[in-house]
C-alpha cells in the first residue's frame, strides 16, 4: 500500500534555485527509506515537502491520502498530526523538562492530562529515557536530547516519522544507538520512516532502501542498498 506518492514533482525556490526536479517516488506503508546525496542536493527540500514546510512548485505530493500541495494553510495541522519530525538540531524547549517537552504538543492540541501521561511515559520508555522525565534539556547529553526529540515526534503515534540528519550532531556510537531506536520504532510500531542523511556508515550498515538524489534529480533507488553502491555507480 502506497503511503507516500510523489509524482513529477519540482521545487523551485523564489530565488530561482531548483532544489528538486521532476522527481517521482513511492513509499509503502511501514517502509524505511534513506534519502542520501551531497550537500545542497535537495534532501531537506524533499523532506520539507512531505510535511508541507514547503509546497511543490509543480507535480503532486500525496502523504497518507492528503494532497500536500493543495492543502490550505488552515488545514496543515491535520497533516502534521500524522507525522513526527526529528531534526539535526534538537529544537527542545529549554525551560521545559523532558516530560513537558514531550507532552507539549499533546497539550496544545487540547488532550486531557490523564490521556497525555501514559502516552508520554510510553514514548519516553521506547527511547530509553524513562529515568530522566524530570531532567531539563541542558542536563542531557546530545544523544539523550535527540531521544527526547524522537519521543516527542512519536508520542502521538504518527504514521510517518521524518528525520533530517538526526545523527548529524552526534558521535558514531551515539548515532548507532539513535539508529537502533528509530529502527525499533519502524519495526515494532510499523511507522514509516523517511530519513535524510550524510552518514555513510549508518546507511551501509542498516541495509535499507536508499534513494539517492543529486542536484534535485533522483539518480538511484535501491532496495537494501548502501552508500558505496552509488559511489561506484
Amino acid at each position: 500500500m502506497k503511503f507516500i506518492e510523489i509524482k513529477n514533482c519540482s521545487k523551485i525556490y523564489k530565488n530561482g534555485v531548483t532544489a528538486i526536479a521532476n522527481l517521482d517516488l513511492e513509499i509503502k506503508k511501514g517502509e524505511f527509506v534513506f534519502i542520501i546525496g551531497t550537500t545542497a542536493s535537495g534532501k531537506s527540500t524533499l523532506i520539507k515537502m512531505l510535511y508541507r514546510e514547503e509546497k511543490p512548485t509543480k507535480g503532486e505530493v500525496m502523504v497518507g491520502g492528503i494532497n500536500v500541495g493543495k492543502l490550505r494553510n488552515g488545514k496543515v495541522y491535520k497533516l502534521r498530526r500524522k507525522i513526527g519530525v526529528v531534526f539535526q538540531d534538537f529544537k527542545l524547549l529549554p525551560k521545559l523538562s523532558v516530560y513537558e517537552n514531550v507532552a507539549f504538543g499533546l497539550e496544545t492540541i487540547g488532550m486531557k492530562a490523564s490521556e497525555i501521561k501514559p502516552k508520554v511515559l510510553n514514548a519516553l520508555e521506547r527511547v530509553g529515557l524513562k529515568s530522566k522525565v524530570r531532567a531539563f534539556p541542558r542536563e542531557l547529553s546530545g544523544g539523550e536530547q535527540q531521544r527526547v526529540c524522537i519521543a516527542r515526534a512519536i508520542v502521538n503515534e504518527p504514521k510517518l516519522l521524518i528525520c533530517d540528519e538526526p545523527t548529524g550532531n552526534l558521535d558514531p556510537d551515539t548515532s548507532k544507538e539513535i539508529m537502533k531506536v528509530i529502527d525499533s520504532i519502524n519495526k515494532d510500531l510499523g511507522t514509516t520512516v523517511v530519513m535524510a542523511t550524510h552518514d555513510k556508515d549508518i546507511v551501509n550498515r542498516m541495509k535499507k532502501r536508499v534513494v539517492t538524489i543529486d542536484s534535485g534529480i533522483k539518480i538511484s533507488d535501491v532496495e537494501k542498498g548502501g552508500y558505496k553502491v552509488h559511489e561506484s555507480a
Binding site: R80, K91, L93, F104, G105, L106, T108, I109, G110
Partner: peptide, 17 residues
Amino acid sequence: RNEIEIMRLVGTRNIVI
C-alpha cells in the same frame, strides 16, 4: 518563536497558536 515552531510542527491549529 521556538515554541511556535514546535507547535506548528506537531499540528497545533493556527488559531490556538
